[in-house]
């Protein structure tokens, strides 16, 4: 790549290249977010059981 214009247009393939990267990153980030949320929920559930057991 010699210029930003070349980079963004991707030699005329921009409408295929950028959506491909966009979909991939949305799915990858979504997977990470879902995994993290699942762990937080599981930890909170255990914490609530422990608190309930101590009462």
């Amino acid at each position: 790549m010699d210029s930003w214009h070349e980079f963004w247009t991707m030699g005329g393939y921009a409408r295929f290249v950028w959506p491909a990267y966009g979909v991939a990153f949305v799915v990858l980030l979504g997977s990470g977010w879902a995994a993290h949320r699942g762990l937080r929920r599981a930890l909170a559930r255990v914490a609530s059981r422990v608190r309930g057991g101590r009462r």
């Binding site: 990470g32 699942g38 599981a42 059981r49």
Partner: peptide
């Protein structure tokens, strides 16, 4: 991703076990 999901999966499965309280 596997490590995070596996930790959550084990906690869900062993929810009632005493040892999970130490995590």
């Amino acid at each position: 991703l596997l490590m995070v999901r596996l930790r959550a999966e084990i906690l869900r499965r062993e929810y009632r076990a005493r040892w999970v309280e130490k995590i």
